[in-house]
Structure formats: structure tokens, C-alpha cells
Write a protein that binds this DNA or RNA. Structure first.
Lengths: 208, 208
DNA sequence: ATAAAAATGGGTTGTCCAATCCAGAATCTG
DNA sequence: CAGATTCTGGATTGGACAACCCATTTTTAT
């Protein structure tokens, strides 16, 4: 019963019910992003979502199940936001645009918050295996999107290195850069980390 | 009174007192590393340190002050462990040895725990400005150690790129690699992230 | 040796929060 | 439109934990 049957519900919900559920997840995601999982109390979530009483327990068995829904939600949000840029990751120009957008976004946030998946993942990694796997799976999807672009470059014969390795290294550089940017409250770490990685990729390009 | 006078004590402690204090910090560091700051209760720390009752409050004003001591402690621990390798960071061979040692260490830990500074930093970044600064300062010291090696390469005319940028990017790659390694429970992310970065550095080397 | 200072142990308090219950209202389905 | 189901609101409970207090013992300095 442990690994099975998580989030068994999600069905049989009225339109209004689905809407309420979504509002709870969104509010929880925001609060957990701002304060961390343990600091975000269900009372806060309740108030922020504009629901009352035992509503949260009506839709989620416990805080854990809500947390898993939040990780899923944040993964979708992160990937959705970058979706328009993923298609371009098969040229250096597109990669630079992607980099610029990430840097720009952090600037708008004043370097606060870090990566929604990374922050959650780091917090739960050692105490919550289920949540750890959920975060890891989110990163796998992200990595896939990056790999897709590099793979197309490789297939066109424009890249002279393993796309798998480069994609993973790029995601790592992004995450590390984000963490340092978050802690220092300046974008330079993110800029430098991504630039180094993209320069490294560029060094392995050749015109087809 | 906010930014001033943190950890005003530390003096006027008997040898036995210093020993007890150190034991508390070490136990707290271990527990916070394993479970996170909020999940590590002072009761746990008390038991793990083998002290009793209000001992923790005898040495620390509150949990916050203990946390700051822990961040300091972990910074020292992380830097101490790498100290023998820092001297060699001015050659590619030394950099590779450093990489190998980090990977080796993660393997011994079965990819658990992540970076002691990074995990703490990520957890406190948005809720605890003082702790955020302490973690950021720890990373600055780490970055300095890496920069030192690259700067010597540069000064010898063997490096054809900004040592400051490379050092920061290397630390970012390391942190991102560690996070992904921790979440996936396999060393490959750390290996690939560091290898990409070291390859990038090597591409900018030339014999003097 | 003795007084002062530091260290220890146990017990207590107040708060916060996850989780549960129940009764009533809204919404869906046949 | 009527019965069933889903949704909602408020109130409560039980446990955990940070923080505090005080009496006693040990250590340090004179």
C-alpha cells in the first residue's frame, strides 16, 4: 500500500470541486515556494486558497498528498513557462535566448525563490522518498526537453559531443547557478554558470 | 540590535563548556543535515549530543543562534575536507583529482545528503535572511579557494579565460550536480556536471 | 580553601498545527 | 424534481515542540 494508489482521487469531482481543488494546490504551491514545505501551514493554505474548514482534507488525504500534487503542479508550471523556448534549443541562438529568458525571469523576481522544483526537492530529499522521486521525475522531464534540442543539433551533424551529457550538465549548471543566485541575491552566478555551459556547447559545434 | 551582536558569547567557557558546546553544534549539524532544519528538533539534538535539559539554551539564545553556529561549522567542515586538494587546483591534473575525490565521497554516502551548505542554504534562503547570508558567505569562501587555483594558472599564463567566472561556474556546476545526484541517488549528474566544466576549463588552457 | 561562576538535570508552560468530526448547504443524477 | 452525492464551514482534539525556570552540582580563579 505504500508505493501504490497515491492520488487515487482526482476523479468524480464536480466542476466546482475541481476548481476548488486547483485553487488549493496553487495556493499551497505558492506558499511552499515562499516559505518551504514545513513552514507553510495548512491554515495558511486554507486562507490563501479562500476555502474554509476541512476543505483541504476533503480533497487530500493529508499534507503529504497535497505536497505531491504541488510538486506535480510546479513541474507543469516550470515546463509550461519554458515551452515556447524549448523548440529553439537546437541552435546556439535559441540556447542564448533561453538563457536570457531565465536570467530575465530571475531579475524580475529579484533573485528570490530559486527553482520551484529544486527548492522543494532539496527540502524533501532526505526525509520523504516519495516526494524525492516526484521531484527527480520533474527534473527528468526538464532534462528531456533540453536534450531534445541538443539531440537535433547532433542529428544534423552540428554537434560534436554527447547530447545526453551536455543536457544533464546544462541542467546542473542551471540549478547550481539558481541556488547561488538565490543565496547571493544577484543574477551573476546564474549568468556565469549558463554562459560557461553554453560556451562549452558552442566549442563543440561545427557547421553542418 | 538585529544585525549586530550575533553569537556574542563563545568566550568565557570552561574547557568542558567548550567541549559541550561543540558536541551540541556537531550533533545539530548532523541532524539538520539528515532531516533539515525544521525537522531536527532540539530534543533530538539534546539526545544526540548526550546533554540534558536546558543545556542547549545555556549555550545558545535560541534555535536560530544554534543554526548560525551550525552553518559556520559545516562551512569549516566542507572546506577542511577539501583543504588538501585546494593546493592542486592550479593544474588540470589537480582539478581532476579534486573532481574524483568529490565523486568518491558522494559514492561513499550513497548519494545521500547533498551539500551541507547548499541544503541548509536552500532551506533557509527565503525565510531567514541572517542564515541566508551565513550560507552565502560560506559559498564565497569555497569559491575563493577554487578561484585561487585558477588564478595561479592564469598568472602563469596557462589559462586563457577569466578565473573569477570559471571559479563561480565550477562551484555552480558542483552544486547543481550535487542536487541532481542527491535526488536521483546516482553519481552521474555530479560526474557529468564537473567533467563538462573541467573540459571547458581545459579548452582554455595553453602551455606556458 | 572558599567564594563565584559555570554547568547540569529535570520539569513546566504556552503555542502552534495537523488531523478529525459533524451538521448543513449546494450540486449533480435519474 | 427528488434522492443521493458532493461540497462547505466551523469547532475541536491531541500531540509535538520551542522556550523558560529553578534547584543542585561541578569547575574555576583567588
Amino acid at each position: 500500500m505504500s508505493t501504490q494508489a497515491r492520488q487515487p482521487a482526482e476523479k468524480k469531482l464536480t466542476r466546482k470541486g475541481q476548481e476548488t481543488r486547483r485553487r488549493i494546490v496553487a495556493a499551497a504551491a505558492q506558499l511552499m515556494y515562499e516559505r518551504g514545505v514545513t513552514e507553510a501551514t495548512l491554515e495558511d493554505v486554507r486562507a490563501a486558497a479562500g476555502v474554509s474548514g476541512s476543505q483541504i482534507y476533503h480533497y487530500f488525504a493529508d499534507k503529504q498528498e497535497l505536497l505531491l500534487a504541488v510538486i506535480e503542479f510546479q513541474t507543469e508550471a516550470v515546463l509550461d513557462m519554458q515551452k515556447p523556448l524549448f523548440a529553439g534549443l537546437d541552435t546556439m541562438e535559441g540556447l542564448r535566448q533561453w538563457r536570457d529568458a531565465l536570467v530575465e525571469y530571475q531579475l524580475r523576481l529579484q533573485c528570490r525563490g530559486g527553482c520551484p522544483i529544486g527548492s522543494l526537492g532539496s527540502e524533501v530529499a532526505e526525509t520523504n522518498p516519495e516526494a524525492r522521486l516526484a521531484a527527480a521525475s520533474g527534473f527528468l522531464r526538464w532534462e528531456s526537453a533540453i536534450r531534445g534540442g541538443l539531440q537535433r543539433m547532433y542529428d544534423r551533424g552540428e554537434l560534436d559531443a554527447d547530447p545526453d551529457d551536455l543536457a544533464l550538465a546544462t541542467l546542473a549548471a542551471l540549478q547550481g547557478g539558481l541556488l547561488l543566485t538565490q543565496l547571493q541575491r544577484q543574477v551573476r552566478p546564474l549568468e556565469v554558470a549558463l554562459d560557461s555551459m553554453l560556451d562549452h556547447i558552442e566549442a563543440h559545434t561545427r557547421q553542418a
